[in-house]
Design a protein around this nucleic acid. Structure first.
Length: 1115
RNA sequence: GGGGGAGUAGCCCAGUUGGUUAGAGGCGCCGAGCUUAUACCUCGGAAGUCGGAGGUUCGAGUCCUCCCUCCCCUACCA
């Protein structure tokens, strides 16, 4: 017997049961063993940052990852099943700092870098364990580490990183120091997830950087770069994603008094008053017209086109000059008395190093008049464009702020103050000293730190870059091999061409990024991350890039013993010095760590054992498939992998990339804890169930955002409940009938053959959609099938399961539904791993010892089911359903409920379907409760005709005559000729220029749809009415049974009072249908425990009473 | 600032090379029906200046111009 299935499922409890079952039966490892050695399918997991518990947005991508892995496993394909954790970088540092209450890098230095780095590692292990548990809960099958083991390593690491410990690898125990074991996680001998902080990962990045250096692409840049004063590090262009936010800054106009033109000043506008102390020049557009305006005693130079926005109060234009005429005018800066400014100016310019520099007007073609005064404040030490301009003119540079964003010494009262907070003080100071002109708030988009949200400043720094090569001013396909060889970006583009991007716009977006990206800034002035293997000689300027730890040992001059036994992280790695290859002096490693996308970009190599197992690598590289959320990844993970793979192997690291959008709250806003629209993964899993979540994600259009919330989930759950109810129905009646599966599927009726054909087609179609990476389409197909199964097959077949004296027919029905549900369980298995396995276990595994004990160990069923496919039957059934729909509509509009039998209906069916539909007439008759169906060939006697001119065909030809033709068609003013042509509105149209449609004649019940015409006979005889009344009575009794909460098979005692005579003959069958063993005339005795009710019939009201007859099956 | 996309019913949104009565689907609402698997399903209904203004055309949600709003990509213009 089947295990009973409740009508209202507890999906969450069921999921926990299945999880336990998988664990107890080692289902996953048996799947891996089963597919080992088969054709392989290579999935590469994009690492999830192990820095926090995973969120519902991660569950979206992880659903895709799991469903495709499971699907390919059902195709018998061997896989690596390796999850990845992203471990290094500012993400983790910022959280550890926060936990410790640190405010700046000085706090970290004081705390100790070794201890800080250890805490970062510990945090990663904590959340890797947590995310592992959550992913398992999601049903994600991967080669997971034991979360408790990860936490054990974390605790040992905290206690003493150098203690020895043993952990279990796939091929036996491994013993090493805790620190080194942690550094070896994910390697073949340890198994489990890969961790980007691993020794191997770091080492291979060194190799990559060495390769870049060999080609001359690594360089040190000196520039004004975006800088986060809180994090104390530069922010690369690659990291600017989502870094722009609206911000209100002071829009300050200041006066720069001209040295040689007494009483006259330049007016200059800035939104960053803190940079005024670094002012070196004022730029004008050489071709812009400037005017001098007089206001009181003073007069000001200003761009003519900016007068409206910049000049305040009344003024008089007294003079006009072109920008080029202003060039070289000298002016007094507002902070000229500061030592730092004096020192910088004392050295003079590049072209005139002898004499001290004085602020002056310089030409710059970029100057515009849309904003500001048309005269631009230039501070090369505090702005990227300023720096470039200053460099080209050889101007002095003043770098005003240190790494925490405070003014250096030499800036008078500003020294030591935070630059970002000085606007007000500077304005006051300028006002007092007569440099102030005007101030008003200005809102604009301003870059912020992507990690901590602090507004970025531009700061003079040395950073390390990988050159991406020049951009040629010519189409890509006209580039010569030599040009490509010289420019990495074009080499990457060629790789991008080889990849299938889903959705397609990803391809253009990646190319766009590659075309516009700047050089890759790989350095970060922080602590936790890849130690950049760059050794920059302070003596001679030579820099070496070391290609691996082994290479470092060879070159090590001093400190190797202090590093040995540690993972290649700060501070230990910093101990090692090498001999400069240029001058022989000892050189230290630059203190910078690496851009974290180097860590993730190398994984197609590091995690597929590029170095330690070439054969393995050749087999699994490139990955067949990766999938990640789009935002940011074009410049991050996708980019990093492409760049690194291009350099190392000149091949694509993956063949297909499937991207998806962003998950936001149900209210259409980003999920935010304080907005109350945020849902934690754990809460979602335990309240809605993960199959519901997985269905929601699978059915979503990947390129759109998902509005995630409890209501969205309700929609998904509803679909799953329909499936569940079908399953529950089957089990309920199979148990009642004592039916169990045996032998081959025995379909008998067209209905049986139809549903089997449908499920067979579904298997093939879903396979096709999943092969083509279109999970949403697969979900739609499944959704439509569940609807067909429930509202058509089952709805029309119910009686065959419950009150069927024909044993063979009943067995056929059970056999068909069983086969259908068993096949469906396998088809939905990749998407709904829990529900499917629960169904499969009960329906199949429990009865068939030769079948695998989990649906996930079965093969995709397309081939097995192929014999059931019957397209002609499916087409006919679609027609039959349409007929039923039309008939229901007719009944609705005629006020004839379906319970009321009708004598007959007429049906016209387009030729092609006739043969097949003929066999379904009985089915239609039963479903719409009509005694006889008459087929008619020509419906003209029953309907009016209407002409629909086919506008796309005739529109161009007739032009202005169209309105008249259409009006005639609407009014029915047309004449049909024997040859099928039609005259209307003064025009004759050929037969194929029009469509003739049937339309109901007033007073008749006719419906039509694409040639299908249905007419019902609305005449009711007394006999038909009596029969309708009987069904009405029966319905009322069944309702009462439900009210009385009786079991489906409970026998009852029935009281009937006031039954009209004409319904009397039907009472026996009513009693039979309602399982009434005893029928008493009159009402139940007062005080009886019977349930009572009444029903309106055509000729009077009937009172009903009923009561369960006590017995083993009574409630 | 530059590039791209989108604005259609209370909401999420389809709408094919321009075709006259704007609607495929989903949610919500209203009404009815069906049902001893289904507090489920089916059928029907209401409601829209198709972001705004012009233009091309016999005819525009669809094509063109300008404007408004939102989103995405990109960007230190001061």
């Amino acid at each position: 017997m089947f295990r009973p299935v409740p009508t209202r499922p507890d999906l969450v409890a069921m999921e926990h049961e299945i999880l336990e079952q998988w664990r107890d039966r080692a289902t996953f490892s048996r799947l891996r063993a089963q597919n080992a050695g088969g054709p392989h399918w290579s999935f590469l997991d994009g690492p999830i940052t192990a820095n926090n518990p995973m969120g519902v947005h991660h569950a979206w991508g992880r659903t895709y990852k799991d469903l495709f892995q499971r699907f390919h496993a059902m195709l018998g394909e061997d896989q690596r099943w390796q999850n990845g954790f992203d471990c290094q970088g500012l993400w983790v540092e910022v959280n550890v700092e926060r936990d410790l209450g640190f405010k700046s890098k000085r706090d970290i230095e004081a705390y100790g870098i070794a201890e800080f780095v250890s805490l970062c590692k510990q945090r990663v292990l904590t959340y890797a364990a947590r995310q592992t548990e959550q992913s398992i809960r999601l049903g994600m099958w991967m080669d997971w580490n034991d979360p408790d083991e990860l936490r054990r390593l974390r605790d040992l690491l905290a206690a003493d990183p150098q203690q020895l410990t043993t952990t279990q690898g796939p091929d036996g125990p491994i013993t090493d120091t805790v620190e080194m074991l942690v550094g070896r996680l994910g390697m073949p001998d340890l198994g489990g997830s890969y961790f980007t902080f691993s020794n191997e990962n770091n080492d291979l990045i060194w190799g990559f950087l060495r390769e870049c250096h060999k080609r001359g692409w690594i360089y040190k840049g000196h520039d004004s770069m975006p800088w986060c004063p809180r994090c104390g590090t530069g922010i690369s262009q690659h990291e600017m994603t989502e870094g722009y936010q609206d911000r209100e800054d002071p829009g300050l106009t200041v006066r720069f008094p001209l040295v040689d033109r007494p009483g006259e000043s330049l007016l200059v506008w800035t939104t960053t008053p803190w940079t005024l102390a670094a002012n070196v020049a004022a730029a004008v557009g050489p071709d812009i017209e400037y005017v001098r305006i007089r206001q009181g005693d003073a007069s000001f130079w200003i761009g003519k086109g900016t007068l409206k926005q910049s000049a305040r109060g009344t003024f008089e234009v007294v003079e006009s000059k072109k920008g080029s005429e202003l060039v070289d005018w000298r002016y007094t800066g507002p902070f000229d008395d500061m030592p730092a400014v004096r020192d910088a100016f004392a050295k003079g310019t590049r072209d005139d190093p002898g004499s001290p520099y004085v602020h002056r007007v310089v030409p710059w073609t970029e100057v515009g008049e849309d904003e500001g005064t048309g005269i631009v404040h230039i501070a090369p030490g505090a702005g990227a464009e300023d720096f470039q301009l200053g460099k080209s003119l050889g101007l002095p540079v003043i770098g005003p702020i240190d790494e925490s964003g405070r003014y250096y010494a030499g800036f008078g009262w500003l020294s030591g103050r935070e630059a970002s907070g000085q606007a007000e003080a500077i304005v006051e100071d300028l006002e007092r000293r007569g440099y102030f002109y005007h101030l008003e708030p200005y809102t604009h988009r301003y870059p912020h730190c992507w990690r901590c949200g602090t507004p970025l400043l531009f700061r003079l720094v040395d950073e390390w870059f990988i050159s991406m090569g020049q951009v040629y001013d010519q189409p890509r396909d006209t580039l010569t091999p030599a040009q490509k060889a010289a420019s990495l970006r074009y080499q990457i583009m060629d790789i991008v061409d080889e990849i299938r991007w889903i959705p397609g716009f990803g391809y253009e977006r990646e190319l766009d990024w590659l075309m516009n990206m700047h050089d890759w800034m790989i350095s970060k002035k922080r602590y936790w991350g890849l130690a950049l293997p760059i050794y920059d000689c302070q003596n001679c300027g030579t820099y070496d890039v070391i290609g691996g730890i082994d290479g470092l040992e060879e070159r090590a001059l001093e400190g190797w013993d202090r590093f040995k036994g540690h993972t290649p992280h700060r501070p230990y790695i910093d101990e090692v010095t090498i001999r400069c290859s240029g001058c022989g002096e000892p050189v230290k490693r630059i203190p910078d760590v690496g851009n974290p996308w180097l860590d993730a970009g190398i994984v197609p190599f590091s995690t597929i054992h590029f170095r330690e197992d070439k054969e393995f690598w050749e087999k699994w590289f490139p990955a067949d498939f990766i999938t990640e959320s789009f935002p940011g990844q074009f410049r991050n993970w996708f980019y990093a992998m492409l760049a690194m793979s291009t350099v190392l192997r000149k091949t694509a690291p993956f063949r297909t990339i499937f991207g998806y959008g962003t998950l936001i709250g149900e209210d259409g806003r980003a999920m935010h804890k304080s907005w109350g629209n945020s849902i934690e993964f754990d809460e979602a899993a335990e309240r809605m169930g993960v199959d519901v979540m997985r269905w929601l994600y699978t059915a979503a259009k990947p390129e759109d955002n998902i509005l995630f919330g409890w209501h969205t989930a309700d929609g998904a759950r509803r679909r799953l409940l329909v499936l569940w109810n079908t399953y529950s129905f089957f089990v309920t009646y199979a148990r009642l009938a004592g039916w169990t599966p045996a032998g081959a599927t025995a379909a008998s009726t067209p209905m049986d053959r139809w549903i089997l054909s449908r499920v067979a087609g579904l298997a093939a179609a879903v396979e096709d959609r999943l092969q083509d990476v279109d999970p949403a389409a697969a979900a739609r197909l499944i959704d439509a099938f569940i609807e067909d199964l429930s509202t058509w097959y089952l709805r029309l077949s119910r009686r065959r399961f419950s009150r069927n004296d024909d044993a063979a027919d009943r067995a056929a029905a059970f056999s068909t539904l069983h086969a259908t549900l068993a096949a469906l369980a396998r088809i939905v298995a990749p998407i709904l791993p829990f529900l499917s396995d629960s169904m499969y276990g009960n329906l199949v595994a429990a009865f068939d010892d030769s079948a695998p004990d989990s649906v996930h160990l079965t093969r995709w069923p397309t081939q097995e089911l192929a014999g059931f496919v019957d397209p002609a039957l499916e087409t006919a059934m679609a027609t039959a359903r349409r007929v039923v729909d039309l008939t229901r509509t007719l009944r609705g509009t005629s006020g004839l409920r379906v319970r009321q039998p009708l004598a007959r209906m007429w049906l016209a069916i387009p030729g092609a379907d006739v043969g097949q539909v003929e066999g379904l007439l009985e089915l239609i008759a039963e479903e719409v409760n009509v005694r006889h169906i008459e087929r008619i060939d020509d419906e003209s006697a029953l309907v009016d005709r209407r002409i629909k001119p086919l506008l796309p065909k005739i529109g161009k030809r007739l032009g202005a005559a169209i309105p008249a033709v259409m009006a005639a068609a609407r009014e029915g003013a047309f004449e049909v000729h024997p040859d099928g042509s039609v005259t209307l509105g003064g025009v004759t149209l050929a037969a194929d220029d029009v469509e003739i449609q049937a339309t109901p004649r007033p007073g008749t019940a006719v419906a039509h749809d694409e040639g299908l015409v249905v007419v019902i006979d609305t005449e009711l005889t007394p006999e038909l009415r009596a029969e309708g009344d009987a069904r009405e009575l029966q319905r009322a009794i069944q309702d009462l049974r439900k009210d009385a909460e009786l079991d489906l098979d409970a026998r009852i005692e029935l009281w009937i009072d006031g039954l009209p005579a004409e319904v009397e003959p039907h009472l026996v069958s009513v009693a039979r249908e309602t399982l009434a063993d005893r029928v008493t005339r009159g009402r139940p005795a007062t005080g009886s425990d019977a349930t009572t009710g009444s029903v309106e019939l055509t000729n009077g009201t009937v009172t009903i009473g009923l009561r369960g007859i006590s017995g083993p099956t009574a409630a």
